[in-house]
Design a protein around this nucleic acid. Structure first.
Length: 954
DNA sequence: TATCTGGAAATATCA
DNA sequence: CTTGATATTTCCAGA
């Protein structure tokens, strides 16, 4: 542990650990203590573990830090501090990146983070503590001289670093908490992955590379450099860890974690109550520590520390704007808002922000990883080089940042690399398309850390999922990244409660390497030209982290309860001739991971028709699972705010009912005179709390010839919206549309980005009542939160969807560094215009389709909406509404206007002939919603601030 | 013997 | 505060 490490540690140490946190704290402490001890004494495995972690962390941290700083700078983290921004970003992607980088470290670190969690302050202590020496990261963040040296610029972040830590924590501390996660960590860390992860970071390197020569040199070169750098950094940091390479991980992991785990059982204590959970529980702890806690990182950092700095760095208005966004969210978050909320908001924001910036961004997220494990490293290097090498568009910016090493530079450094994991990316661009040839089964029982592996995810048709990159004619192999993403209505992001788990053994034919990016385990799988760039995913299992562990994390806003659906998210980074890197992403269909849900909840995988004239009467066949003779199929039309405008139980053919198929007669729509397609939802219900997710269905005007009713029709409106979306999209679209839309459900997503989004959302997450609730809420809440900061860019994107996609390339390319930033910069002008002018229309249209379908759409849209049109509130409101029906009700007025064009038409103009029944959603959700709503509001407030700032900027 | 599973008891959380 | 319903997490045991 290089001296550097120590310094850092010191810093952290300085911060007193927060007693407040409960378990987490303890865990953190344990860990930390271990680390220390280990570091000092070099306890075997554990130590190594830590080391690794630390190393990882270190590596990651530096990057992260840098990112953070950068992000801040870029974003303008301005508002908040770069740190904050970063953090947030990190939260998700960027955050992750950074933190993540620590990735594994993140987990480990996370504890540290947590501490910060609340306020940066605190966290630092903890985390640091744990990893002290190891975590040079810390140092890095902090400045560890060594590190810096090793990693010139990026490292610099140090100054930033300090702040960052907190932020980082914010992410997910998976590390800390999860520690419990430890498990996760375990899985992550413990397994080879841990090592690997650390090393794997190569990504980081890639990232690094980006800026390195971003534009300039060839990918490889850059990449390599980046790697080297990263490596160096890692090394430096890791030196200790290097050893890790050994295998410490395992032992370490287990041991360390085990202990932690043991504690878990008790978890209950730690666990928070869902309703309150995130908020309450977390609060106190977090709060106490740092008032700002939640956002702690983000907020605290941002505002306090960073603001000043940030500004300096950021110079650009864009950055400022971004920052503002970020900041706002963060800020607001801090105080009242529960940590979770904050995080969400923050996270997203950050990421977004970061994205904006070219380089830095959060990459951290990505970069975080920079570390590569030696072994794997070598193996993957070439691959990675190819992949990562590319610099992203952003790079250029970095230079700028570099100039200011500490604050921004660091960030930028980091960020340059790859887009954060929470960024939305398109599934195809130009000649390239990343496609899931074989979808995973809809159910896969995830295993707990306390259990053995439950094997790899299997394909619905038997065998295993298959992913292929089309249109890639180069001879250089690429790396396919896989991580577990969310399946709720909100934007796709790494799932806080699930981690990918690398499966090895005789039955596994696909080699893989684990790395950790910002608290998210990422499986790297080679994509070889000789295999037609096709990969059989037989090496990916799913690890379930205890809810209590994750929810305790400082920044975590999501609720684990009933949040059991995930998606496999695949990414590939394709180096371009111009030195940039094109990042594509595809998400699988949702996978139900809980034993119970898988056994009881009805699940609709396919439907024989997606649309039909309002007259109804046609029978469609639903394919799926857990259908019962007395299963009911309910068609629902939702208002933008989430209220059920119309509900109708469809007739089912009980005789034809089979566990895997259900015959349903399409009920006539309430309004037989619609002039444009109306999107509704339906779900299968086996009982009070046993509902499937919402499925999309489109009613077509009676007289209209039934062409293929595809979602696209519905979306058309969205297209019209285009302007706005586009404007927005430039930034956001790419991500959203890309991610959500394209990849996920190619088939389903006929429509453009939005469509895809909606579909996914609807399909995926929109769960009617049961699970949905949480999802909805959480998602909504999250979205809201997220949106605030990010929304501008990210959210909007969704709308952009298809159209955007083409544009996407830009953004995409840009991402590497930080989509948002770049895009923001470019877009801002447009965005503002579009927003202002088109918002309403485009919005509505877009939304509309969505709104009907479910919260999701709205959410996505909202972001745009918000940004463009109204202050945060409106947007937020809208979002909330969608997601949170009840809450929405209250607020709905504001939102609604925007949202439903079609609805309005139908209801208003046409005046639906059929009585409209407004249905309230299940009570269960209420509390959650309320909580979420509160959070949202808070976020909104924060976002509002941001918006205002933005406006100013504009 | 180790791993993979399916099942289900033990806990927790909600209402 | 108790109770029943749910949901999550830990254990068991067979293959």
């Amino acid at each position: 542990m290089p001296s550097p490490g120590l310094p850092t540690s010191k810093h952290f140490l300085a911060g007193p650990p927060d007693p407040a946190r409960g378990r987490e704290t303890l865990v953190a402490l344990q860990r930390s203590s271990c680390p220390f001890s280990s570091s000092s004494s070099m306890k075997s495995a554990e130590e190594e573990h830590y080391n690794y972690a630390s190393s990882n962390i270190n590596a990651g941290l530096p990057l992260n830090v840098a990112h953070s700083s950068l992000s801040t700078a870029c974003h303008g983290l301005q508002t908040s501090n770069p740190v904050i921004s970063i953090v947030p970003s990190t939260n998700h992607p960027s955050g992750y990146g950074g933190h993540i980088d620590g990735g594994a470290s993140g987990y480990y670190l996370s504890p540290n983070v947590r501490p910060n969690g609340a306020p940066a302050l605190e966290s630092p202590r903890i985390e640091i503590t744990s990893y002290p020496g190891l975590h040079h990261n810390n140092n890095q963040f902090f400045h560890d001289a060594e590190v810096e040296e090793a990693i010139p610029n990026a490292k610099r972040s140090p100054s930033t670093a300090t702040l960052n830590l907190p932020n980082i924590e914010a992410y997910r501390d998976p590390s800390c908490l999860s520690p419990a996660s430890s498990l996760s960590s375990r899985s992550c860390n413990s397994e080879a992955s841990s090592y690997e992860s650390n090393y794997s970071y190569p990504y980081t390197s890639p990232q690094t590379s980006p800026w390195q020569s971003p534009c300039v040199s060839p990918k490889t070169t850059d990449t390599e450099e980046g790697y080297q750098r990263s490596m160096v950094a890692c090394t430096l940091l890791n030196s200790p860890r290097h050893s890790p390479s050994t295998s410490p991980r395992t032992s370490i992991t287990e041991e360390n974690w085990l202990s932690a785990r043991n504690s878990r059982p008790s978890s209950p204590c730690n666990k928070r109550k869902y309703s309150l959970n995130g908020r309450q529980t977390s609060y106190s702890p977090h709060h106490s520590p740092t008032p700002s806690p939640q956002s702690s990182p983000r907020v605290s950092v941002t505002d306090d520390t960073w603001l000043g700095n940030t500004n300096q760095y950021t110079s650009s208005a864009i950055v400022a704007a971004i920052n503002a966004l970020t900041t706002d969210s963060t800020i607001d978050m801090n105080d009242g808002i529960p940590i979770k909320s904050r995080k969400t908001a923050i996270d997203h924001t950050p990421s977004m922000t970061l994205k904006t910036e070219p380089s830095g961004e959060d990459h951290g997220t990505i970069s975080p990883t920079a570390d590569l494990s030696p072994e794997e490293f070598s193996g993957f290097q070439h691959i990675r080089k190819g992949n990562f090498c590319d610099q992203y568009l952003s790079v250029p910016q970095h230079p700028y940042q570099w100039a200011k090493p500490k604050s921004l530079c660091p960030t930028s450094y980091m960020s340059p690399s790859l887009p954060a994991l929470d960024w939305q990316l398109p599934s195809h661009s130009g000649p390239y398309e990343l496609r899931i040839e074989e979808q995973p089964k809809s159910h896969h029982r995830a295993h707990y850390e306390t259990e053995g592996s439950r094997g790899a995810v299997k394909a619905s048709a038997g065998g295993h999922p298959v992913v292929q990159l089309h249109g890639y004619l180069e001879s250089e192999p690429l790396t396919l990244q896989l991580f577990i993403g969310t399946a709720d209505d909100r934007l796709l992001r790494p799932h806080a409660f699930y981690q990918v788990h690398r499966i090895t053994g005789k039955t596994v034919s696909t080699t893989s390497h684990e790395t950790i990016l910002s608290n998210t385990k990422v499986l790297e799988i080679p994509l070889l030209p000789e295999s037609k760039m096709k990969a059989i995913i037989d090496c990916a299992g799913i690890l379930k982290l205890r809810n209590s562990d994750i929810e305790l994390r400082k920044g975590e806003t999501d609720i684990g309860r009933k949040n059991t659906r995930v998606r496999l998210v695949f990414r590939v980074h394709i180096p371009q001739s111009n030195g940039r890197t094109l990042s594509l992403q595809v998400a699988s269909n949702p996978i139900e991971c809980s034993q119970r849900s898988a056994q009881e909840l009805p699940l609709v995988e396919k439907q024989s028709a997606d649309s039909f004239p309002v007259i109804g009467g046609k029978k469609i066949i639903l394919s799926g699972h857990n259908f019962l003779q007395d299963s009911k199929v309910i068609f629902v039309e939702k208002a933008p705010d989430g209220h059920h405008v119309w509900e109708m139980e469809a007739k089912t053919d009980k005789e034809m009912c089979k566990p895997n198929s259900l015959v349903v007669e399409i009920p006539p729509f309430r309004n037989q005179r619609i002039t444009s397609p109306v999107q509704v939802n339906f779900y299968v219900c086996n009982g009070k709390r046993k509902r499937s997710q919402y499925q999309l269905f489109t009613y077509l005007p009676a007289n209209v010839p039934i062409i293929k009713t595809e979602p696209s029709d519905d979306y058309e409106p969205a297209q019209t919206c285009g302007p706005m979306t586009q404007g927005l999209n430039p930034l956001s679209k790419p991500y959203y549309s890309q991610q959500i839309m394209m990849p996920p459900d190619p088939g389903s997503c006929l429509v453009a980005g939005f469509t895809s989004c909606q579909q996914r959302n609807t399909v995926m997450s929109s769960s009617p009542n049961s699970s949905p609730k949480l999802h909805d809420l959480s998602s909504s809440a999250y979205k809201c939160i997220t949106n605030p900061g990010h929304s501008h860019l990210g959210l909007q994107q969704p709308a952009g969807g298809v159209p955007t996609v083409q544009e996407v390339p830009r953004s995409i390319v840009v991402h590497p560094s930080s989509p948002e930033q770049s895009s923001l910069i470019m877009l801002q002008p447009q965005v503002s215009q579009h927003l202002s002018s088109s918002c309403s229309l485009g919005y509505q249209q877009t939304l509309y389709p969505n709104s009907p379908s479910s919260p999701v759409p709205s959410v996505t849209q909202e972001p745009t909406y918000l940004q463009s049109c109204s202050p945060t509130h409106s947007s937020i409101m809208g979002q909330q509404q969608h997601q949170l029906p009840k809450v929405q009700r209250n607020e709905s007025p504001t939102n609604q206007p925007l949202s439903l064009p079609e609805l309005h038409e139908d209801s208003n103009h046409n005046l639906a002939p059929i009585p409209v029944m407004i249905k309230r959603e299940p009570e269960e959700l209420d509390q959650l919603y309320l909580d979420d709503v509160n959070e949202i509001i808070r976020n909104d407030l924060s976002s509002t601030n941001v918006h205002s700032e933005l406006a100013i900027l504009d």
